[in-house]
Lab assay of single mutants.
Amino acid sequence: LPLEERVTHFRDMLLERGVSAFSTWEKELHKIVFDPRYLLLNSEERKQIFEQFVKTR
C-alpha cells in the first residue's frame, strides 16, 4: 500500500479505537497495539501520525 493510504488506515484506526486527543502515546497504545492496522507504519511514522492526530482533534 502507498504511504498515504497506510496513514489513512492508521488515522481511521485511531478514531475507531477512541484514542483521546488529550492523552499521551504511551497511555493510548494499549487501545491500538493489537489492531492489524497498527503495523502498517513503522514506529517513527506511528508516533508522528499520532502527534498530528491529537493536535487536529
Results as ranks from 00 to 15, higher is better:
V19K: 08
T8H: 08
D12L: 07
K31H: 04
P2M: 11
K27E: 11
F50W: 11
E45N: 14
D12V: 04
R57G: 15
R46A: 12
W25Y: 14
V19N: 09
R37P: 02
L3A: 09
D35R: 07
K47Q: 14
Y38D: 01
E51S: 10
V19T: 03
H30Y: 09
G18S: 09
P36H: 08
L41H: 06
N42A: 05
R6C: 02
R6W: 02
K55H: 11
T8V: 10
K27H: 04
I49R: 02
L3K: 15
H30V: 05
R6V: 03
R11D: 01
E51Y: 08
E16R: 00
L14T: 06
L15Q: 15
S20R: 00
E26D: 11
L29K: 14
N42S: 13
H30G: 06
G18Y: 02
R17G: 00
K55I: 10
L41T: 05
H30T: 06
E4T: 04
S43G: 13
D12W: 12
L3Q: 15
L14K: 01
G18T: 14
A21E: 11
E44F: 11
Q48V: 12
R37T: 14
R46K: 07
G18C: 03
F53D: 00
E16Y: 01
F10C: 00
T24Y: 10
Q48S: 12
S20L: 05
H30K: 08
D12G: 08
M13N: 04
L1M: 03
F53L: 02
F50Y: 14
S20V: 03
K31D: 10
K27G: 09
E4A: 08
R37A: 00
V54Y: 06
L14H: 00
K27S: 03
S20D: 11
E28Q: 04
E26W: 01
F22E: 13
P36L: 03
E4H: 13
L15S: 13
I49P: 01
R46D: 09
E44I: 14
F22Q: 14
T56K: 12
Q52I: 05
V7Y: 12
H9E: 10
R11E: 07
L40D: 00
W25E: 03
P2F: 13
N42L: 06
K27P: 04
R11V: 04
F22Y: 13
E45S: 06
E45F: 04
V33I: 14
E4G: 04
K55W: 06
L41P: 00
V19P: 14
R46I: 00
R6M: 10
T56R: 07
D35N: 04
P2T: 15
T8S: 11
L40V: 01
L3M: 15
E4N: 14
E51H: 12
N42K: 12
E28C: 06
Y38F: 12
L41F: 05
V19S: 02
F53A: 00
E44L: 11
R46G: 08
E51D: 12
I32S: 00
P36M: 00
F10D: 01
L3T: 12
E51G: 04
A21V: 11
L14F: 01
W25V: 03
K47F: 12
A21F: 05
V7A: 13
E45Q: 13
N42T: 09
Q48T: 09
E51F: 10
R11P: 14
Y38Q: 03
F34R: 14
K47I: 14
P2E: 15
V7Q: 13
T24Q: 06
R37Q: 01
L29V: 11
F34K: 12
L15H: 09
F22R: 11
D12M: 14
V54A: 07
S23V: 09
T56S: 13
V54M: 06
S20F: 06
F53I: 04
V7T: 09
L29R: 14
K55S: 12
E51W: 02
E44Y: 08
T24A: 05
D35I: 04
P36E: 08
L29H: 15
E44T: 12
R17T: 07
H30D: 10
H30P: 14
R6Y: 10
I49H: 11
T8Q: 05
L29C: 08
F34V: 12
D35T: 01
E45W: 07
E16N: 04
F34W: 09
L15P: 06
R37K: 02
L14Q: 05
E51T: 10
F34H: 14
F22S: 13
F10V: 00
E28A: 01
Q52Y: 02
D35G: 02
F34Y: 09
V19E: 01
E51A: 13
L40N: 13
V33S: 13
G18L: 06
E5G: 11
M13S: 02
V19C: 04
H30C: 05
Q48K: 09
M13D: 01
T8P: 13
V33M: 10
V33W: 08
K55C: 08
K31Y: 01
L40S: 04
Q52N: 06
E16L: 00
L41R: 04
E16Q: 14
A21G: 09
L14V: 00
T8A: 13
E5P: 03
K31N: 10
M13A: 01
V33C: 06
R37L: 00
Q48D: 15
E51M: 08
L15W: 08
L1G: 15
E5H: 13
V19W: 02
I49K: 03
E26C: 14
H9Y: 10
S20A: 08
F22D: 15
D35K: 06
W25N: 05
K31R: 04
K31Q: 02
K55M: 13
M13K: 05
H30R: 09
D12P: 01
K27Q: 14
N42G: 10
L14Y: 08
R46F: 06
R11A: 06
H9K: 14
E16D: 14
K31P: 03
R6T: 02
L41I: 08
E44C: 11
L40M: 09
F53N: 12
E4L: 11
P2K: 15
I49Y: 14
L41C: 02
E44H: 08
I32G: 02
T56A: 13
P2V: 13
H9C: 11
P2A: 15
P36D: 05
K55G: 10
L3G: 11
Y38H: 08
N42P: 06
L29T: 10
V33L: 07
D12N: 10
G18Q: 07
P2Y: 09
L3D: 12
M13R: 03
L14E: 03
R17M: 10
N42D: 13
K47R: 13
T24N: 09
S43N: 08
L29Q: 14
G18A: 05
I49T: 14
F22G: 13
P36C: 01
Y38T: 03
S23A: 13
V33Y: 12
L15T: 12
R46E: 10
Q52H: 08
N42W: 02
Q48I: 11
F10R: 03
N42I: 03
K55F: 05
F22I: 02
E44P: 05
Y38C: 00
S43M: 12
L14M: 12
V7P: 08
F50K: 01
F10E: 00
V7D: 11
Q48C: 10
L29M: 15
R17F: 08
E44V: 11
Y38W: 00
K31T: 02
V19L: 00
L41K: 00
K27F: 14
V33P: 12
E5L: 05
L40G: 09
R37I: 08
